[in-house]
Nucleic acid binder design. Structure first.
Lengths: 150, 150
DNA sequence: GATGTAAAGTTGACAAGGAAACTTTTCTAT
DNA sequence: ATAGAAAAGTTTCCTTGTCAACTTTACATC
């Protein structure tokens, strides 16, 4: 066998392809709600964490501070999150869901459930859970997120 | 249990997080070669397919025609692929690796191997293969690529 | 053979995220 | 006290990719 045939099995390549497809389909489902996939991810994280500093959120979500900053801007603009100054350290502040944001999460979570169900329906329940487990393992053991898994 | 606790297990969310991390690390490894992750993916696809029309490549790679068009521009600019006109149908043309491009693939494949090995080292060989299988299944059964799996 | 439709590519506008430079505020040593 | 280092966020620049509009060429049907 040639060195080339091994090209076929790069996991990163497969991962990128599947992830893109899932996000893309989800984006279409979210379009009517005026929320993007990235925005949903942040709302979702905030729902689980309560008030949190942008830097901590970046750690948790596996993104850079810069990306979080811009994302928070957009969500603040849309009135879905609020920013609260910290009197003890004026460098920072904290982010949390606004009332409107909190009300919207369950609806969006429903869309996410639907999307997951549709895309992963081709796997058995066991396979689906196995996939989640493997992904969680990769996240934890590669230090992609500070929180256990979320 | 609340409806909220289920937020924790959206597979699309985990997938996005892992995929971003893998691509990002790979991008850093490729930086010195003046090739991006997307460019590598295209070179890799061309290596396996021989001359192919942009639209067919889009199907195969799970990307839009527009993305392929721009990607091909960049790779052509870098001299890694060549464009060949089709006399029978002047709307289209075909893409293939240039000599320089073909020579570069094995080197890049080595980087990809290294990257895979480093990132997925936290899984056992069985787990890693299982993950690949699950991803291939998702690709095939969701019609993400025209080719069997590649 | 003219007209309408489909197909192949390209392009422009926009969203997304990383990297690095920069500002402001806080902490640490001396 | 004060200089220097570190930390928190923001902003700029750059790359990538989608979507939709558009151009060109081919095909079909009448």
């Amino acid at each position: 066998m040639s060195a080339v045939s091994d090209l076929a099995s790069h996991t990163g390549y497969l991962l990128r392809m599947v992830s893109n497809a899932v996000s893309q389909r989800f984006a279409r489902k979210l379009a009517g709600e005026d929320v993007t996939v990235a925005e949903w991810a942040m709302l979702r994280s905030l729902y689980g964490s309560g008030a949190i500093a942008p830097s901590a959120l970046a750690e948790k979500m596996g993104m850079t501070k810069g990306a979080i900053s811009k994302l928070a801007d957009r969500l603040h603009e849309k009135g879905l999150i609020s920013r609260t100054g910290n009197p003890e350290d004026r460098r920072g502040h904290s982010l949390s869901l606004s009332t409107a944001g909190a009300m919207k999460v369950p609806l969006l979570a429903g869309f996410a459930d639907d999307n997951d169900a549709a895309f992963f329906a081709v796997l058995s329940a066991e396979e689906h859970e196995r996939l989640r487990d493997l992904l969680r393992t990769l996240i934890v053991k590669n230090g992609l997120s500070t929180v256990p898994v979320d």
